[in-house]
Simulated assay, not measured.
Amino acid sequence: MGGRTQTVLLNHNATISCSVSGPSRLDLNITAVTWFWKNPVTGTDDKVFEVFGGCSKAFRPGAGVSLQGLVKGNASLQLPEVQLWQAGEYRCKVVNTPNMDQGTISLEVVACPVISLSVKVKDNDYQHLLCEARGFHPKLINITWCKWDQEYSQCLNISENVTTNAVIENDDKTFNVTSFLTRKCSPEHAGTYQCMVAHVSLCTPRRRNITVPENGSEPKSNSGMPLWIIFPCLVIWIGVCCVTGPTLLIVY
């Protein structure tokens, strides 16, 4: 039953699904459920939670399996405010005397990037547009630039004069990265520029716009973006683009 992956956002609650198919109602007096997590450091299978004969014990704070749900065949593991270190392989072992079965599932913990777009004046002739992505996980991320063409109402990709720094790991194991677009301070380079960030935690790429005026006045960020652009992580969890995981099915 391996090979399945479930994704959860950092600091969100997770329910790792495990379903027991058999009798319409399980007898908790002869049913035992044990959840294990494969420790990536030691390689051992550490107990997370177990229940037997209606008595339960959590080996990780907040972990649990609903006894009311277990009677109906739902042996799903509930974890509160999941952290990055809790990612990895989980194993659900169910004993319904005299039968036993088990299955594994991988939990992936992701963190959405916080995006900001600003301008740094290099000198009187050039400016740096800075697109910063902070606090994301995993490490892989893609940042691209474009400039809005008013005549054709489209954003034209920019590849020249773009520099993206190496990704930096934070103490909490999330990552930061900055991308620079260097432009000359001239009327032909005025207009609206867009930084687009793509990451596995986002349903769609996240965008930030900034308008650079011709007269050299202070550039203005575009604050009139739709909710789904400003809060993409919120969208993931209210059903528009819901990240869901598979269910382990244990059959007797």
Results as ranks from 00 to 15, higher is better:
residue 193 Y to T: 12
residue 86 Q to A: 13
residue 167 V to T: 15
residue 201 S to M: 02
residue 13 N to S: 15
residue 77 L to H: 02
residue 65 V to K: 05
residue 198 A to I: 00
residue 5 T to V: 15
residue 210 I to F: 04
residue 147 K to V: 02
residue 29 N to P: 04
residue 147 K to T: 00
residue 186 S to T: 14
residue 167 V to F: 03
residue 99 N to L: 11
residue 239 G to V: 08
residue 196 M to V: 08
residue 246 P to F: 09
residue 104 T to Q: 09
residue 97 T to F: 14
residue 38 K to D: 01
residue 106 S to I: 11
residue 189 H to D: 05
residue 200 V to F: 14
residue 231 F to P: 00
residue 35 W to G: 07
residue 22 G to A: 10
residue 165 N to V: 00
residue 208 R to H: 10
residue 243 V to Q: 02
residue 234 L to R: 02
residue 96 N to T: 07
residue 7 T to H: 08
residue 134 R to A: 11
residue 40 P to V: 03
residue 187 P to E: 08
residue 91 R to N: 09
residue 218 E to P: 03
residue 130 L to K: 02
residue 122 K to M: 14
residue 73 G to C: 00
residue 75 A to M: 07
residue 202 L to K: 13
residue 249 L to C: 13
residue 53 G to Q: 06
residue 237 W to R: 06
residue 62 G to C: 11
residue 139 K to Y: 00
residue 117 L to P: 02
residue 181 L to G: 04
residue 164 T to Q: 12
residue 87 A to W: 03
residue 101 D to P: 10
residue 132 E to G: 01
residue 50 E to T: 13
residue 159 S to K: 05
residue 220 K to C: 14
residue 121 V to E: 15
residue 194 Q to S: 02
residue 251 V to A: 13
residue 214 E to M: 14
residue 56 S to T: 08
residue 16 I to V: 04
residue 209 N to K: 09
residue 98 P to M: 05
residue 4 R to K: 15
residue 224 G to T: 09
residue 216 G to N: 11
residue 87 A to Q: 10
residue 79 L to P: 00
residue 203 C to S: 13
residue 189 H to K: 04
residue 244 T to H: 04
residue 93 K to F: 07
residue 146 C to S: 13
residue 44 T to A: 15
residue 199 H to V: 04
residue 90 Y to C: 12
residue 201 S to V: 13
residue 30 I to N: 12
residue 99 N to T: 06
residue 108 E to Q: 12
residue 131 C to M: 05
residue 218 E to H: 12
residue 65 V to Q: 08
residue 160 E to G: 09
residue 249 L to A: 13
residue 24 S to H: 06
residue 57 K to D: 11
residue 238 I to D: 04
residue 152 Y to L: 05
residue 139 K to R: 10
residue 46 D to S: 14
residue 232 P to Y: 15
residue 12 H to L: 03
residue 12 H to S: 12
residue 159 S to Y: 02
residue 2 G to K: 09
residue 228 W to Y: 15
residue 195 C to L: 06
residue 106 S to Q: 08
residue 205 P to K: 10
residue 191 G to W: 05
residue 26 L to S: 01
residue 38 K to I: 07
residue 198 A to D: 15
residue 120 K to R: 09
residue 146 C to F: 03
residue 24 S to Y: 07
residue 73 G to P: 00
residue 235 V to H: 13
residue 204 T to A: 10
residue 89 E to K: 11
residue 201 S to Q: 09
residue 30 I to H: 07
residue 84 L to T: 11
residue 5 T to F: 00
residue 145 W to H: 04
residue 185 C to K: 13
residue 84 L to C: 13
residue 246 P to R: 06
residue 12 H to Q: 11
residue 165 N to S: 11
residue 20 V to R: 02
residue 92 C to Y: 03
residue 189 H to M: 07
residue 200 V to A: 11
residue 156 L to E: 02
residue 135 G to S: 11
residue 189 H to L: 05
residue 65 V to M: 04
residue 51 V to E: 06
residue 154 Q to W: 03
residue 98 P to Y: 02
residue 185 C to I: 14
residue 196 M to P: 00
residue 117 L to Y: 00
residue 109 V to S: 04
residue 215 N to A: 12
residue 82 V to R: 04
residue 115 I to G: 03
residue 145 W to N: 01
residue 151 E to P: 00
residue 161 N to M: 10
residue 228 W to E: 15
residue 178 T to V: 12
residue 186 S to C: 10
residue 139 K to V: 01
residue 115 I to F: 06
residue 221 S to H: 05
residue 1 M to D: 13
residue 194 Q to D: 01
residue 87 A to K: 07
residue 45 D to E: 15
residue 236 I to C: 11
residue 8 V to D: 03
residue 131 C to P: 01
